[in-house]
Design a protein around this nucleic acid. Structure first.
Lengths: 184, 184
DNA sequence: GAATACATGTAAAATGTTACATGATTTT
DNA sequence: AAAATCATGTAACATTTTACATGTATTC
């Protein structure tokens, strides 16, 4: 539902192809929003039918042509309305790890611990990424004056990723420690 | 994808109807897994075709009959295999609030702050629920000896909810405080 | 008198994933 | 020589949401 707004949002900065948008998303919003290449292409097509974007072909040599999308005035309006509307609910989460854990009473604690330790490594890598790469990327964008306001907001979303991963690692540590005592 | 495992998991405790399963989910896993009534019904139907559950009708007076589902041996096997398989990835999140925030540079800080303060209230209510109602429900289940192992695991998932909400509120507080300085 | 709980479900639409297809260029 | 990147897209499938349909009993 919100993918269309994400695409419109990115297109307010500059016209881009579906491929570009996927790269940008992976770089910037993957912490809290993601989509597959194929979904991006189909959603752009729908947005064009709704006249919220228009596209033109940019020919290329030795590469497939690029279809570059631009946001229309209608698109800007739709995006603006969505942004102005305050979010009044908490979005329900889905966490497969927690679901497995919930039903894992039949498993040996050792089997569960293996998964938890593995997850800890993954989350630590993510945390470091937010603290180094992501932080630096945002800092650089924020350096140019016309991007400063945007970069401040982006930094708050990066900070969310950082706090989230810290929380997750803390929970994993607690749970691992707790579960190590369940052996006997 | 995992809804079927959730349903199988609940059915290992006792045979239940789709309606029961919805109530149970809302009470227990809503912190990390949820589904609409209609999806539960259709998934149960699919599970019956795959012979992972079987159902029979329980007649009732003055109420529609109940269709009660039981897990089969095939179902137990499928669930067991899923549980034994360690989760090797981090699941991508989707957070509409963060997406909006990311593109909100054009909004007045006051408009954003309204949403953030509203969200804080919602998250505080959730946090309290985990710390009181949910905690108490799990404690009571854990009191009976045959549920003790399960209740220990349930408590770890409740704790996740608690840490998550604490983290979210902390992030909101930080962001609100930060943004209050952007006014001038 | 209206709303909620009980209880079941179908149909349609929206959203998202996986697999397939193509083909040149660049990197390992 | 194999794999990855650039770049586009379609088709099929799976998942999820929303809306509709029905009807009694109880609570506010």
């Amino acid at each position: 539902m919100s993918l269309k707004y994400a695409l419109l949002g990115f297109l307010t900065y500059q016209p881009q192809s579906g491929y570009d948008l996927k790269q940008l998303m992976d770089l910037s919003t993957s912490n809290f929003w993601h989509a597959k290449q194929s979904q991006i292409y189909t959603t752009l097509k729908k947005l064009e039918i709704e006249e919220q974007v228009i596209s033109h072909i940019e020919p290329q040599e030795n590469r497939p042509n690029r279809r570059v999308y631009e946001i229309t005035e209608t698109g800007e309006t739709v995006l603006g309305e969505w942004l102005a509307q305050p979010l009044m609910v908490i979005e329900p989460r889905k966490e497969t790890l927690l679901l497995k854990l919930f039903f894992s009473a039949r498993l040996k604690p050792e089997a569960i611990l293996t998964t938890l330790r593995l997850q800890k490594n993954l989350h630590q890598a993510d945390l470091e990424k937010y603290q180094t790469t992501t932080k630096e990327v945002i800092r650089q964008f924020g350096a140019s004056a016309d991007m400063a306001a945007d970069a401040r907001l982006w930094e708050t979303t990066r900070r969310y990723g950082e706090l989230y991963e810290e929380m997750y690692i803390r929970w994993l540590d607690e749970t691992i420690k707790d579960m190590e005592g369940w052996g006997e």
